[in-house]
């Protein structure tokens, strides 16, 4: 009998002696993993080679892409949408930095079925504050105060073959636009160019204590078509101070992103 009591005591001590978690609380462990990919014309992006033709007939290459998404919302069939970590979850993706292309969301997300995923391309006006990111690489995305401040939504850098058959650089940069009284001086207003992306075919199920991976794919060619045909020969290599060009690009952005929902049990490990 005494041995049984001692056994129980020892067991209790081992199990509770140093535990910090409050007893009786169930911790949800289901996890959402967002990964990010780049494709052109249905194939994985091959950088640094003049392999592609846009709708305007420009032969072009992509050298690097950096962009932000924020306000990721998981929409439920019957229930409130889940906004991932309302203020802090602004995610930076960089084609040169593999770590940025995988986001293990640490929010507590209710298990269950979700209809779709949406997010803000870029950063909304309230959140897009200068010096919000002090550290690289995010800080290198700053959008000059004179041009509206905050951060680039995206830097898509590449080159195209111009009408003289010379390979010219382009910087397809999107962010806050400006309204000029006298271009390029005398700015009298700013335009918030961020927009909401609703990912098609992004319904998923998050099992209790399980995980779900969704790959967000940027289909790069769509930046340059539908509804607007974007011609580098017309717009040139830089558009940060050209709101009309940024407007066309952002309008094209509605179908740039697609998603791939991983089948349960086929989650890629880091």
């Amino acid at each position: 009998m005494r041995s049984t009591i001692f056994f129980l005591l020892v067991t209790i001590l081992f199990n509770t002696g140093c535990r910090k978690d409050p007893p009786g609380e169930t911790v949800s462990t289901q996890k959402l993993i967002l990964t990010f990919d780049f494709m052109i014309d249905g194939n994985p992006l091959q950088r640094d080679t003049l392999l592609y033709m846009n709708e305007a007939g420009n032969q072009y290459m992509v050298n690097e892409i950096q962009y932000f998404i924020s306000d990721v919302v998981l929409h439920r069939p019957n229930g409130d949408p889940v906004l991932l970590d309302a203020w802090t979850a602004i995610h930076y993706i960089d084609s040169d930095l593999p770590d940025t292309r995988r986001w293990e969301v640490y929010d507590t997300i209710p298990a269950g079925s979700y209809d779709s995923v949406s997010f803000t391309f870029g950063i909304n006006e309230a959140k897009n504050q200068s010096l919000m990111f002090l550290n690289p690489p995010e800080s290198f995305m700053f959008w000059p105060e004179y041009l509206g401040g905050g951060y680039h939504y995206m830097k898509l850098n590449g080159k195209w073959l111009d009408t003289n058959s010379v390979v010219q650089p382009f910087d397809f940069h999107l962010g806050i636009g400006q309204i000029y009284a006298h271009y390029p001086d005398s700015i009298i207003g700013f335009v918030q160019n961020y927009f909401t992306v609703s990912l098609p075919n992004s319904a998923f199920s998050l099992p209790a204590n399980g995980q779900q991976q969704i790959t967000i794919v940027m289909n790069i060619e769509n930046w340059f078509r539908n509804p607007n045909t974007f011609d580098f020969n017309h717009w040139g290599g830089d558009i940060m101070q050209n709101q009309e060009a940024m407007r066309l690009g952002c309008e094209n952005g509605h179908d740039v992103f697609t998603s791939i929902v991983a089948k349960q049990g086929s989650i890629e490990q880091k």
Binding site: N157, K159, V166, Q168, P169, G236, G237
Partner: peptide
């Protein structure tokens, strides 16, 4: 051919 794409004023 190797000029950085940020040097878009090369034209």
């Amino acid at each position: 051919p190797y000029i950085d794409p940020l040097m878009h004023h090369i034209a």
